[in-house]
Design a protein around this nucleic acid. Sequence first.
DNA 1: TACATTTGCAAACGTATGTTTCAAACATCT
DNA 2: AGATGTTTGAAACATACGTTTGCAAATGTA
Lengths: 209, 209
Amino acid sequence: MAQKDTVDRILDAAEALFAERGFAETSLRTITSTANVNLAAVNYHFGSKKALIQAVFVRFLEPLADSLTLRLDEAEASAKELSLDDLLVLLSKAILSAHGDDVTRTASFMRLLGLAYTQSQGHLRDYLSERYGRVSTRYVDLLRPACPALTDTDLFWNTHFALGAAVFSLSNYGALEAMLSDDSGEESKIQNVIRRLLAFISAGVKVSL
Amino acid sequence: MAQKDTVDRILDAAEALFAERGFAETSLRTITSTANVNLAAVNYHFGSKKALIQAVFVRFLEPLADSLTLRLDEAEASAKELSLDDLLVLLSKAILSAHGDDVTRTASFMRLLGLAYTQSQGHLRDYLSERYGRVSTRYVDLLRPACPALTDTDLFWNTHFALGAAVFSLSNYGALEAMLSDDSGEESKIQNVIRRLLAFISAGVKVSL
DNA sequence: TACATTTGCAAACGTATGTTTCAAACATCT
DNA sequence: AGATGTTTGAAACATACGTTTGCAAATGTA
């Protein structure tokens, strides 16, 4: 096989284009011509555009869910108490390492995650929460004992504030980086931004009303 | 005039529908039939769909910018040093009061703001930053002396994390509130959530790397 | 009243979209 | 090699969209 499989080429093109322009704004014709693939291939391999969108998410989330599950297994096996910062670092490592430290892809996936939330795409939300609900609630359940001073309501809102900060800033990372004066150089590298983000979240989550 | 002006009815419908479903996902036919107005009225009164989107934003942002400018004038006139919390409270009051404490509209506008960031190909972003750049940089300039321990880069990223937390959580407020067990009652009222959000942001913004 | 301008409306236009069709090319297995 | 099932390709289909048009109704102005 001289070049990648049709299915993968479609997924690659779709992932990049969706992240760049949104779902509704990206036509199947743009995707297929970017992927050098016939228009009908999408409906043949995936069935519909909706199903293609879901497939893009699954291709990214499956390794992430696996990586996260594995790390949670390890961490819990060590029997040590998991602090909030332990958990935050664990999650960010799982996300970053889920695709061979391809930071660009991680960033563009964060954009997709942001789109999935804002762009109503109800089918996606239902599909994802049904498919990855178990891992995510497992993670949240570990958060509770790590923040003993917080009520459940505290924790609920603080985690969503944190999620918002992460999704928003990482999904707009490209645009934000461009706003910084160019001499910021090393300081805007995404690994540093993630460190900043973790510090921000760590401080915020601990707050109770 | 038995009912509201055509222009206002279009703006009302567009604002609600855009917030609910996004820009590309909301057709002019849906807007005009919701507003009980002829299809051609949008292009007649606004010129194009793009211009309608901009008009929706302007109708909300104009009073907000005025209110914010006024409050900043007052605050600076008092010659007292403005703390970070002073500034956060000032901003949240400006946002909430800009439209007669209509919290629902504020929430749905937050959703629009989120959409504008993730979903616009730039025309909206350029238009808004050109039109409201002055007020927003004035506000950010006041933030700097309020956080003397932070470098400019610290402040840049922290404010965007905070913006993300605010936009994300308020724009999804409806969905989030529904996730809480119903006996949370008073604790999920939006004024309380805003207080939580301000506390979260206040703690996070102070963090330096 | 008479005229000019603005607003409202139904229909149509051109275009772009997601999807389907069906025959050709390809691969796989006996 | 031949039969069978899978994948591609070019074209068409049906539909939904933003926009434009032409004319009627309403409104303002003298």
